[in-house]
Design a protein around this nucleic acid. Sequence first.
DNA 1: GTGGTCTAGACCACG
DNA 2: GTGGTCTAGACCACC
Lengths: 136, 136, 136, 136
Amino acid sequence: MLIHIDERSTTPIWEQIVQQLKELLLKKVLQPGDKLPSVRELASSLLINPNTVSKAYQELERQRIIETRRGKGTFITETVVPQGSEQQLGDIRQALKMLVIESSYLGVSRDTLVQWIDGYLNELGGESHANRPQSD
Amino acid sequence: MLIHIDERSTTPIWEQIVQQLKELLLKKVLQPGDKLPSVRELASSLLINPNTVSKAYQELERQRIIETRRGKGTFITETVVPQGSEQQLGDIRQALKMLVIESSYLGVSRDTLVQWIDGYLNELGGESHANRPQSD
Amino acid sequence: MLIHIDERSTTPIWEQIVQQLKELLLKKVLQPGDKLPSVRELASSLLINPNTVSKAYQELERQRIIETRRGKGTFITETVVPQGSEQQLGDIRQALKMLVIESSYLGVSRDTLVQWIDGYLNELGGESHANRPQSD
Amino acid sequence: MLIHIDERSTTPIWEQIVQQLKELLLKKVLQPGDKLPSVRELASSLLINPNTVSKAYQELERQRIIETRRGKGTFITETVVPQGSEQQLGDIRQALKMLVIESSYLGVSRDTLVQWIDGYLNELGGESHANRPQSD
DNA sequence: GTGGTCTAGACCACG
DNA sequence: GTGGTCTAGACCACC
């Protein structure tokens, strides 16, 4: 599996899993319909507790990104619904604002930030539904 | 004091204080050399625990943004050191990456993100040392 | 067969079968004395595990809705026994109560609920033994 | 606490807690702003594991019915947002349909169902925002 | 085999 | 004191 856990990070392990699986999906490494490793498999390969993986999977299911079929395992959802609630958009904006403030302090210029964003969007692949770097 | 605490927010109160003080500084509402309210003062005016304010001040001091002069109080540092450690830069990049991924899922376009960034930079005032929107 | 399995649903497959067979019976698509497909037949036509079909049939048999005649197959029971145990009635009431509570939260009005009930009863056909919409 | 756990029930304990707390809220036994018992308190009074209570609280928070203030405890949300997603409405309708089918089998008439609904709505108190028995 | 639930007990951050 | 995270290990339903 292409997931890497940073034990020293302050972000919970289950959240790291959620984020990295989302990233893999946007990068098309994982495709709709694909089967995810079972809870136990992933847990043992990451050397963590199955409950932790389970929590990550449940969160992804809550976000309709994956779905579980009883007794068969967990799969990437076929229909993608790129729709954010007001609440979630507010969270993004809030996080972005704090990030801009921090960047100011660290001497990261506006243009550098934009370059980084474009870089990440390129990593995710140009075909991603909503985001595309300018020059595309 | 121009600080507002959101009790419901998931970000710790001490972190909200740190962020807002930084913001006030970038907006030049607070200037180098200015005296900050004492821990007890700020705590009682915000109706929060003094320990919480103390923790915020400690963090700001760790970042060399404020300094305590024993017996005199807490002051904004005179010398500005807009230089981020590798560690901090890595944190910013990591946060930005996650933000880009989430934005992709919520259907927030690259250009929207850039607009938001420029908006926040304008709020902070165009003269800020490192960042400047657009015309740069 | 007129049965449709929703793999994504959280209700177990065997339960989906039970419910839909009951529905077909109430709709008079299936009549007392009719022969049901064998466990293997139904399983292969629904692309599911025979054990799952078997469990559904066992449940229906427990409820005296179908009966197996050894060597001959499975049939809809001739004698209808529209009499619920206290236990079953309690379950219904409990389920209905939770449904009413959830409806309250979702803003579904009392009248809407009643309309939905009448709608389903109409689907089942007005001649059903115990229930009849409106004119009753 | 006015919560009762049915150990023999098939519905998970955390879900029973969610349902009963919702009911208490609709009955105005719990009011917006009220403090809920702490996770540990409720757990020990119900003789269950704190994790189980925690799961219930997290689910209620996800539904914006309660909110936790760090270090202070868990509280009923002030602003009520009676808004259901399409998905949730579909779930209700599906549950209602199955309930109607079961009722048909158990000989529960349409009018009995409606009477039960009105009874539950009365229990919840006539002032409830969306539902009201006819005669009101 | 799969995931879901629950327990017991630990550690941590926050206030 | 509060809730959040994680582990270890158990049991269960479903397929």
